[in-house]
Amino acid sequence: MDNILLDETDNSPKVVMNKDKGLISFEGKSYPENTFAFYRPITEWLKHYFLSYKDEEKKTCINFKFLYFNSATTQIIFEILDIIEESKVKNINIYWYYDKESESGLEDFEDYSEEFPTLNIEAVTY
């Protein structure tokens, strides 16, 4: 399984999925023309990553730093969090970044963190 590194574009986020460093991050805008096709390799990567998660000492950091995103991305984020939750893997730190002036950014954090209480998603404002 290769690492994934996608550069940010006008309508898609920078994506880093580094299995060696245990780093997964999304940063930027997310409204690709075909959102599900864009994220399919990413969700498949995540499934494999967590299936082969043998080392209990291993730590993984997941950063969600979306500036704007469409409704299909909303569903994808739920799917990603579902994959993580179902894996039952420990030692995962999940951070949700949002503009401190953004009420909707806070609401998004609340929705995800309340929907996935066992994942202990942390808010980070900027």
């Binding site: 704007y68 995103f69 469409n70 503009d99 002036e101 953004s102 009420e103 909707s104 950014g105």
Partner: peptide, 9 residues
């Protein structure tokens, strides 16, 4: 900024 975000989205 919240309004900008909502209008953009």
């Amino acid at each position: 900024k919240d309004k900008v975000k909502n209008v953009f989205e």
